[in-house]
Nucleic acid binder design. Structure first.
Lengths: 231, 231
DNA sequence: GAAGATAGTGTATTTTTTACACTAAGCCCC
DNA sequence: GGGGCTTAGTGTAAAAAATACACTATCTTC
């Protein structure tokens, strides 16, 4: 892994995608196992070089798809990392994106040989990662924790229909706190952004919870008028 | 200004620095007049290419100094712009930074010939700008408006000692609202982050206001404990 | 039909936010 | 030195929001 032995890269910048998922009450991050030098066989955040012919947002979409099979994910840029020696082959700055997705493990397969596999890993217990990816993951977590306080992004981790308890668990996992059940429900329902569904939970061995949908259309309307969603 | 006539650039990325100042009750942005192609003689946000041997934060510092004479300014990265055709000479992505400074027009002189001059311009009334700098400035304003709601950055636009009315004017200019004087003062003083000075305003033709200093040390301590400064 | 599990609900208290108008101090000018 | 001008500085009551807190309801399983 010395700088001299590897060929000089053509492109000078890359994208990295920190994808959050939620499962078993835990916040997870999507990782890949690299199948190419440098850092061959290391675990890493999905990322790769940007082509000359694509814009960076598009590159993030493509790279994520190639390394994980995930498609049409809304990715938001959160920071650019540009330390001189962050890449052993030369100067590569990387634009980092994040997204929250509803987990669905079918279809989580790299479609190029650049990655050997893609898998979920608890956000609070990451293995050693390639490049400065540890730093990138930490920054993503920080941004997520800040963002969830004033934008309704928790919903993105859940299926379309969800219970209030599920939603509360999301907030508790991300903010790492206990939240009072009654106060949480009161607040969430007070915005009028949750549509109660006729269906209830199924296949649970206890009283079934009501399910809700998040009304994102209505949220967008309110947001334009200055409404701020706060937990 | 055709793509073909100009030489291919060596470096693929640049930095741009959106510097905010406050004067005459108005929020201002620092601009330069370019003295080199492309966009020679156009107004622009201070920015230039990053050297291979410097990290991007350092490049932002250097570029700002070269184009305006401003030194040792704390710059915070806020977004990276990477549209394919944003630069007429080829693919250049740019990492944008912003900062808030206490205005002091002495020493506002480019130190390289890349810029003909540097000057302040009202943030709400920018001229036509080079590249995608209009877009960059708009994004910076958006970030500033959001940031000022939960971090005490308004102080950075003021001299060390300032009156509460001055501070209120900063908030009113950035947030573009009227704020109630009594409520504003009550809230600002409630945090215990303003140290009353013995001095009062001088050279004013009316009752002189008390001056205050922002206690940033104490703020940092509180912040670590979870305190959030909110207007 | 009892036990176990989670869903679902209300109220009183405290804290925060909001709305609102007059007096105080210093300067200037006559 | 007094009147007028300009901005500084101050308090309170009402409304809204946040908090703390514990029991009953419903469904499943055995």
């Amino acid at each position: 892994m010395t700088r001299q032995k590897l060929p000089k890269l053509h492109s000078d910048f890359s994208v990295d995608c920190v994808i959050f998922g939620f499962d078993e009450g835990e916040l997870k991050i999507l990782l890949i196992e690299r199948n190419e030098a440098p850092f061959k066989k290391w675990k890493a955040i999905p990322g790769n070089l940007v082509y000359d012919t694509e814009d960076i947002d598009g590159a993030a979409q493509r790279v994520l798809y190639e390394l994980s099979g995930l498609r049409n994910i809304f990715l938001e840029q959160f920071h650019t990392f540009g330390d001189i020696n962050r890449h052993p082959q030369g100067r590569v700055i990387t634009v980092a994106y994040y997204s929250l997705i509803k987990r669905n493990d079918e279809g989580l397969h790299p479609v190029t040989s650049f990655a050997r596999k893609a898998f979920w890993c608890p956000a609070n217990n990451l293995p050693e990662l390639a490049f400065d990816h540890q730093k990138i993951a930490m920054k993503a977590l920080e941004v997520l924790r800040s963002k969830i306080q004033y934008e309704p992004i928790g919903f993105e981790l859940l299926p379309e229909k969800f219970s209030l308890t599920q939603l509360q668990h999301i907030y508790e996992a991300i903010l790492q706190t206990k939240i009072d059940k009654r106060n949480f429900r009161k607040k969430m329902l007070s915005y009028g952004l949750l549509q109660e569904q006729k269906q209830k939970q199924t296949n649970v061995s206890h009283r079934a919870a009501k399910l809700y949908k998040f009304n994102s259309l209505r949220y967008e309307t309110l947001k334009k008028k200055g409404f701020i969603f706060g937990i």
